[in-house]
Structure formats: structure tokens, C-alpha cells
Design a protein around this nucleic acid. Sequence first.
DNA 1: GCAAGGTC
Length: 638
Amino acid sequence: AMFSGVNSLNVLMVAEKPIMANQIAKILSKGRKLNFRKASNGACPVNEWSANFMGKAANFKMTSVCGHVMTLDFPQEYRDWRRHQPIELFNCPVEKSEANPQLKMRKCLATEAKDCNVLVLWLDCDMEGENICFEVIEAVRNAMKKSQTGNFTDVVFRARFSSLKDVETAMNCLIKPNFKQSLSVDCRRELDLRIGVAFSRFQTFHFRRYFRDKDVKLISYGPCQTPALAFCVNRAEKVDSFKPENYWVLSCELQANSEKVIKADSLRGPIHNEEEANMILNKIKDNTYAEVIEVNGQRNTKERPKALNTVELLKICSTKLGISPADAMHKAENLYTRGYISYPRTETTEYPEEFDYMHILKFIEPNLIAVWTNQTLTIEDVIQKFTSPRKGVDKGDHPPIVPTQWLSPKSTDEISESLYNLIIKHYVSTIMPPCITETQTILFDIGEERFQTQTSRIIDQGFTILSETISSEEQLNFKAGDQVKIKKTNLISRKTTSPSYLTEAELVTKMEKHSIGTDASIPTHIQNICQRNYVKVESGRKLVPTKLGRALIKAYQELDPELALPTMRAEVEAKVNLIARNEADYDQVKTSVLDTFRQKFDSFTGQAQAINYLFTDCFPNRDFNHQPNHARAPSKHF
DNA sequence: GCAAGGTC
């Protein structure tokens, strides 16, 4: 009824990224002629077709943005570091500007909207997507044809879909975009900007001034990068403060049969007192036989991996290829845009229903030799062993990362090829059977002491055949009551080993667990703390904090530990989420969080002199002709 | 020179 007086409906539809626009258009235009062209920016697709909309004939135009249309920043005047003091950034104006000026996204959207009288928003089903909805609305509002009712919002709809199989359903039950969800994103963006930039500028000024060193690089603070750095520093402190401790392990060698000697360990585990250890040894050393008490067999299943999502890809790239998350994502994006792998940013670990598993196996065959270490394995073996994948989690974003087309090693660089092969290997692993072993545990008594020995036999190597050469151990033929000749009793002295520095992969895990950053932003945060010289990547992708990185975290811990706490990010997010759930309003949340951080800022800047000593060795270019200056907060005249 | 979040 809304469009009863309208002659022709022209429906503009907008997705979050080009790939989604094309996939949705393909589904909705099913069976009809689909016209394709590029929008004026050369980046965004425009798909056009004709069909019915709300019972009327309509021309559809499906295009996309490329993520956020707008970004938030300070006005020009405040972008100049010297014109205003950092504290002013807590309440100065902020303004939105185009996120990527080269894309001319707003102009592009307005051009496409010109002859349209209906807008359907197909942005991703998350809070950022809801926010982009309103960025698109602002971009097309004035360009679109006047609606019949005169009320623009009447002709704006939101399609809510969490996977491609929901597209048709979503089209049939369009809803309205959720302004509160969008507002909560606006709030988070503004808080991150004001807080992050204020602290970053203050810190940078403070050290430049105190050490009279104009070459002091940016000393940044951020709600994601700083807790990420803190993870590295905390682990490094454990490495530093580690003192090896002695402990003793009691074990024995038993003559299992005429040719075989086996080793059994005391069930006590490590003994921390040498006297006690010797006392126990003395009690048993005169025994000549051990008695078998119990023989147990147990089946163990080593599960294959779940379908590949982004963070798992990042971790594997770091541990297996030795490349950083940022490099891994660049390579993956490149493979994706060239059509070799599916969309590489996803949290989902569940394959779609009716997924064509065999199709992939067919085109990857030429790569198999490179992929698995077991060179006798054939594609037929894999097909024959096919096992339905493990149940994963569908986050409603994109399907897991899989190869989509054969990649000739000749047409790419070495790292991209390794990355592609790694994705293949992971894929094949997910559709192979799990690895089943049988562990035999034998318990012995020697005097009052209990010992244990274990053997492991492979029942089915399953997916591990792709990468491991596990040898099956021979099971021992014992039964309860058997007397076994003792060949030797040993007391082995050992030292506890030092913990090691946090690896890149461990950092990714910790960040994900504490919701610090997202799958798409975690690589950037890690790159930041490396490039700003807070941590160095050493062999084995270990993240070793520098003097500067350690000093920074130490400084927060002395002045305001909350600033570097891993829980801080989630707490701020919980607060802005209240806006989305209509449990608090925008100004209330913004004011309360800003007040909290303004107080932290005041107290931090007020006490900054007290932490200077931590940074004495951090800036090698400092001017030694001057005594360290008594740093003040930068004044207007500085 | 700055944050974090989308994506190209």
C-alpha cells in the first residue's frame, strides 16, 4: 500500500563489501537477467535486474560499500599537535570525514541512488554493520527521490541475514535499521579516539621534553595495543624472575623379557627435597622384583582441527610459516582477491550445509605432494577416508577459509604458495578421521612405592598421516601379580625449566579470549607494538619486550594499573553495549567513560615525573649535554 | 606522528 501511487519502483540495495553484493544479487535475481558493471569509483560492483518488490514490479540495483564509509577524527585545528593541549581532546569537537577519500564512496552512493525510491540495507549482521547502515543512509538521503509520504525513513529497510542461505528469507521480512546499535558504535569510536590520542600525545610530548630528544618517536597508548603489550611484558617478567629449582625424579629400569628393558617412573612425580628423595630411594633399592599391580588399556582420540577461521589461520601462519599476522592477512587477502581462497576474515568454524567437500579435493590434487609429508598418500586414500567434519561454530559471518581454485606454484610467490598449501592441509585434516591410539598403563609396586609405565599403540592414524610420522609402540604382555626383575633404580636430579617469552600465536589467543581487538584488527595491534619498538620478534616468533615496552607497562602499573589491564577493553565495550540494548543513553555512557578516563589522565599527567626513571635507557639519542628537563605538560607556547 | 573499526 505504501507504494500504491508509485509508477515504478527503483530499489537501491547496499552490502558491506563487493563480494557480498555479488553473492546476494546472484541469489535474489535467480533466473532473471543480471546486468553487471562497476560503480564510478571502479571498486564497487553494481548488479541490476528486474523483479517484484512488495507486490510491484521493480528495478533492483545491488551495490556495496567497502566497510565504513566514514571515519571519526578531530577537526583540522586539533590535528595540529601544538595548537591545543592533549587534555582538550576530551571535550573538543570531533567530525566525521570519508574513511577512504580515494573511493569517493559518498559520491558513488549518491550517484547510484539518484533514480531510486527505495533503499534496502544489506550490511553485515553485527553492530559495525548497523552503524554503516546509517552512514549509507546519510550518503543517499538527499539524492534519492522524494517518497510518497514525504518521510524518508518510510522507504528505508534493513535486511537482517546471518548467512547466504538466509538471503531470501531476509528479503521477505525486511525490518528497520537499529539506530541504538549504530549509536553504540559511534560512542565507542569517539571514546577510543579521544582517550587514545590524548594519552598518546601527552606521552610523546612528555618524553621528548624530559629527555630533550626531538627524535623520540611516537609513544602511543591504546585500549587494545596497550593490554596486548602488557601480555608480552607480564610473561617477560616471569622469564626474568625465574629461578631454577632442583627436583628429583625416581625411576627404575625393568627387564620386561629376555631382550627388552622398560623404564617406569614413580607416581610421586617430582620430589622437591633431596633428602626425602634419597630416603625413598634407599627404601626401594634393595628390592630385586617389581610386582605388577594393574594393567589398563585406554582408547585416546586426538581430534582433527575444526574448519579454519581467521585467528586460527594467523596462529598457524605464525608457528608454521614464521610470518606475522599482518603479513599473513595481506597474503591471504591477495589470494582471496585473485580467487584462490574464500573470504579470509571470518570467525566461523562450521562448514555450510550441503558443502561440496569433493569439489575441493578434485582441484587441489596437483598440490598434494607439496602438502603432506607422507608421499605415498593419494587423493583416493583421502576420498576413501572421508569423515564428516567436527561440529564447529557458525558466527553468521562468512564460511570457513577454504581453497576455491587450483593455484599453480608458478603463478605466485613462495610464501603465498606455502600459505595456500597450509590452507589445503588444514582443509583435508578437517575431513579425515581423528587419530585413535590405545594407551596401555602398567602399575608396579616396588616395596611401598608405585611406578608406572605407558605404551602407545596406533589404532588409526587418521588425519595425522598428513604431517606426522608416529611410530606405534609394542604393547607389553603383563598381568597383575607378575614379578618383574628390577635392573636398576635411578634418582635423577633435574632443574625446573624457565618459562619462555610469549609467542605471537599465544598473544593472538590471549587477545581473542579477552576480546581485545577483532579478527580483522588483531594483526594491526600486534604490528603496532612491534613497529613502535615496544616488542621485538625473536626466533620462534617469540615476542620479547624492549626496554621501552617494559618501561611503559611498568609506568602504568605504578601510576594506574587499570590502563594496562586485559579486562579494560571488555568493560568499555560492555558499557557502550548498554546503548545498543537501550539500557543507557549515548550521552550518559560517553560522559561517564570520558569522566573516568579524564580523571585517569589528570592523575597520570600529574604524576608523570615519578616514572621518568623507568625510561632512562630507552631513548639513546637523548641530549646528554642537558640535565633531564623538568617536564611540564606542553603549554600553548611550546 | 595519534585510537580502533570496517575493507580494497
